[in-house]
Simulated scan of single mutants.
Amino acid sequence: MTAPASPSATASASATPSSPALTGWPTATGSKAVSATIEVSGTYDGGLARHYGSGDLGGDGQDEGQDPIFKLADGAVLKNVVLGSPAADGIHCSGSCTLQNVWWENVGEDAATFKGKSSSATYLVQGGGAKGADDKVFQHNGAGTLTIKDFQVEDFGKLYRSCGNCGTQYERHVVIDNVVVTSPGKVLAGINSNYGDTATLSNVTVVGDDDRDITICERFQGNDDGDEPTALGSGPDGTFCRYGTSDITYE
């Protein structure tokens, strides 16, 4: 069951927003219980209200197949939203989408999943932040390119994962720029080199990882039969994991 976007949702706006400076976590302006997925076509401005799951969306575990709080149509924009707990499966993008100034206080199954089937699909996450992801923050199941910029993440498993064992596989790309990462965490970008995936990273600041346990970019042998993908290696290689030592700063 799904619910349409609120009447305050406006017409589509595809322009890329300007780059904001990284800021502290916002204070929610109010709270809204969401019992059925909110479908967005166009632009939904949440006014920084906290949206959290209730009823059928009241889960915050890692069970696969949960419904999202928001489902975005191709070209939709979601901005100024705080996702509280429980957050179910966060946000699903059916095609190209923009997530601007979206904050996850405690990630559920995943913060956002990108499902566009076209190689020309583009997804933009600009501003915002995420905490408390037991596994993945951003799950890339479809095709195309995801850009994550001006973002902050802490206490997470993987910031980005190109699906390692989806039934339909694609070549996928991620660009990570101006991101502040606070430990604990495991992996910033996980990609499937056998499908031609790439991860391009720049202006990444890692805080509190004195032992440098967080893997910046990890390559996998993906598959389409549901088996656990095989790890192939990590670190910059100039082809799949694209960054240099000057692109990562430790504090």
Rank of each mutant, 00 (worst) to 15 (best):
S94E: 15
S94N: 15
S94F: 11
G95V: 10
G95N: 10
T98F: 09
L99M: 12
L99C: 09
L99F: 06
L99V: 07
L99A: 06
L99T: 08
Q100L: 14
Q100N: 14
Q100C: 07
V102K: 11
V102F: 06
V102D: 01
W103F: 14
W103K: 10
W104F: 15
W104E: 03
W104D: 04
E105S: 12
N106M: 12
V107Q: 04
V107F: 03
V107T: 12
V107R: 08
G108T: 10
E109Y: 13
E109G: 05
D110F: 15
A111L: 03
T113P: 08
T113L: 13
T113V: 14
T113M: 14
F114I: 11
K115C: 08
G116C: 05
G116V: 03
K117G: 12
K117N: 13
S119E: 13
S120I: 05
S120F: 11
S120D: 15
S120Y: 11
A121G: 07
A121F: 02
A121N: 15
T122W: 03
Y123D: 04
L124S: 08
L124D: 03
V125E: 00
V125Y: 00
G127S: 07
G127L: 09
G128A: 02
G128Q: 03
G129A: 08
G129S: 07
A130Y: 00
A130P: 01
A130I: 01
K131Y: 04
G132I: 08
G132N: 15
A133N: 06
A133W: 00
D135A: 11
K136V: 06
K136N: 14
K136R: 13
V137C: 02
V137Y: 00
Q139M: 13
Q139V: 06
G142F: 00
G144H: 07
T145G: 05
T145E: 12
L146D: 07
L146N: 05
L146F: 00
T147G: 03
I148T: 02
I148K: 08
F151H: 06
F151E: 02
F151L: 08
Q152A: 09
Q152N: 04
Q152S: 10
Q152T: 10
V153C: 04
D155N: 15
F156N: 02
F156T: 01
G157Q: 07
K158I: 04
K158Y: 13
Y160F: 13
Y160H: 04
Y160N: 03
S162Y: 02
C163E: 15
G164R: 00
N165S: 15
C166F: 01
C166A: 09
G167F: 08
G167C: 09
G167K: 14
T168S: 13
Q169A: 12
Q169W: 00
Y170G: 12
Y170C: 10
E171V: 09
H173S: 12
H173G: 07
V174I: 02
V174R: 01
V175T: 12
V175K: 10
V175A: 03
N178I: 02
N178L: 03
V179N: 09
V179L: 12
V179A: 10
